[in-house]
């Protein structure tokens, strides 16, 4: 006989997230420092490289690496940037 069990998960289907539309132009790249030690050094290098290519850069930082980025910060990045790079440095 088949065994019936109860689903121990939250029964949520993963939300589908389509890729954002590609404009073909470089636009503005957000650099998000998650506040790991020396993440800023890594992002400084990335920023210099992007600017040398004529790409606009916007620097942002999370309050702490231990917690998700606040909603307002995520929204600000989404509204002002065309792409974002998160720095996961130690």
């Amino acid at each position: 006989m088949a065994l019936t069990i109860l689903d121990p998960t939250a029964e949520r289907d993963p939300a589908g997230r389509p890729l954002a539309a590609r404009s073909g132009k470089p636009g503005t790249v957000g650099l998000l420092d998650i506040r790991k030690p020396r993440g800023d050094i890594f992002l400084d290098e990335v920023e210099a490289g992007l600017r040398a290519r004529g790409i606009a850069v916007l620097r942002e930082a999370k309050p702490t690496y231990t917690k998700p980025a606040p909603v307002d910060l995520r929204r600000a990045i989404a509204e002002r940037c065309d792409a974002v790079i998160e720095a996961l440095a130690d």
């Binding site: 006989m1 088949a2 065994l3 019936t4 069990i5 109860l6 689903d7 121990p8």
Partner: peptide, 19 residues
Amino acid sequence: RIVARELSIGELEDPFEAL
């Protein structure tokens, strides 16, 4: 009182392996 989705483990499956 119980609303969780029911999952069926087949007769030929070992429940422990299936989980």
